[in-house]
């Protein structure tokens, strides 16, 4: 005879986490559906990374062949930034051995959502080894005194 086991809270949490993971996978895969290049805008989407620590949010962007002088960082809203950079030279599909597509690329462009509230005015940026690093201090609220 089959026994009906009551599901423990851990089972429920486990299922919930699995469901969340599936949703995350789906979002990632949907994002992957679009190409990393845009022929009309002549732009390539660079690889980027966002690290959140207790006091700052650090964004890095990989910009090989970018002209360091042309890098622009724009704050579009409280939690969205845009990075653009011109390339030192035009890049064609042929440069990658691809001859069945046509197009040339002159710039990098990407929009990066910030996962935590930041003080955009305190941001600092530097360009090291072809990688752009932008550091934002995280927004501070107020302190609660321990009695």
């Amino acid at each position: 005879m089959a026994t009906v086991r009551r599901r423990s809270i851990f089972d429920i949490i486990h299922d919930y986490i699995e469901e969340l993971e599936e949703i995350t996978d789906e979002i990632i895969e949907r994002y992957m559906e679009s190409p990393s290049w845009d022929v009309k805008a002549q732009s390539l989407e660079p690889l980027f990374n966002v690290f959140v620590s207790s006091d700052k949010v650090t964004v890095t962007v990989d910009l090989p062949k970018a002209d360091p002088e042309s890098i622009k960082i724009s704050i579009l809203s409280d939690n969205l930034i845009e990075i653009t950079a011109k390339m030192k030279m035009k890049i064609h599909f042929e440069d990658f051995g691809v001859t069945h597509r046509r197009g040339e690329f002159t710039q990098f462009c990407c929009r990066i959502p910030l996962p935590a509230p930041v003080e955009t005015s305190g941001a600092k940026a530097r360009f090291l080894r072809g990688v752009l690093e932008i550091t934002f201090p995280r927004k501070r609220g107020y302190e609660i005194k321990i009695e």
Binding site: I28, E29, M32, L44, D62, P64, I91
Partner: peptide, 22 residues
């Protein structure tokens, strides 16, 4: 040719990153 390699490997890195997360 480091910069060229980095540019050429961009898409593969993107796909690999998704699998690394899994």
């Amino acid at each position: 040719k480091g910069e060229e390699v980095r540019l050429a490997m961009r898409d593969m890195m993107r796909r690999t990153q998704t699998e690394l997360a899994k």
